[in-house]
């Protein structure tokens, strides 16, 4: 298996470098599609088919469309920029912090990891009592145990929807043309 995993990760890194280096934005969109396919394959090998499904549908499907739509409104090539060291440093520090953060995570497939041991007794058994007789476990988890999480997600999606509507709405008759 490691023979398959290492080349996929190497291809991922290669594609990321290609996206960063290329100046033709049309090709960059294409490479983002490739990156998404590779990332989804990697998630699949990590035994997360649901995440891989989402990544393939959103990353390779919808975002390609959205990016191309954006390109249709803007331009196809990126302006040449001067090389600057600050973004490299920022990205390096952020990456190092993230890698440092993963050291505390349990090993992949560890039977003693919190995700294998923590919900015990399980939500299925205790949710009805906790929620004063609410029979639906999914509702209990989404609306109560993870209530703040769900609220945050809804707020994020709502904000994104408003922003997209504000950007994409058509100019009304008589309204000043916005640039």
């Amino acid at each position: 298996m490691i023979l398959i995993v290492i080349p996929i990760l190497a291809l991922l890194a290669l594609t990321a470098v290609a996206v960063a280096r290329i100046r033709d934005l049309w090709a960059a969109v294409m490479f983002m599609g490739i990156f998404s396919f590779l990332g989804a394959s990697w998630m699949l090998i990590l035994d997360a088919p649901d995440v891989a499904f989402t990544e393939a549908a959103v990353g390779a499907g919808i975002s390609t469309f959205l990016m191309l739509g954006t390109l249709a409104l803007t331009g196809k090539t990126e302006k040449p920029t001067k090389f600057s060291i600050v973004p490299l440093i920022v990205v390096g520090i952020t990456g190092a912090a993230l890698v440092y953060g993963t050291f505390d995570m349990p090993a992949y497939g560890d039977p003693n990891a919190p995700i294998q041991t923590y919900p015990n007794p399980s939500f299925v058994e205790k949710s009805e009592h906790d929620m004063h007789g609410l029979p639906n476990v999914v509702t209990a988890v989404l609306a109560s145990y993870r209530g703040y999480d769900t609220l945050g997600e809804t707020a994020v999606i709502f904000t994104a929807g408003i922003a997209v509507l504000l950007i994409l709405r058509k100019n009304e008759v008589g309204e000043k043309e916005s640039v």
Binding site: W26, V29, M30, G33, F37, A40, L44, P49, A52, F53, A56, A57, A60, G61, T64, F65, L68
Partner: peptide, 17 residues
């Protein structure tokens, strides 16, 4: 199943491009 979805996505993305 996921592979099926991938081939569909590949086709749609290709048509869009």
């Amino acid at each position: 199943d996921v592979a099926l979805l991938y081939s569909l996505m590949n086709f749609i993305g290709m048509v869009a491009l």
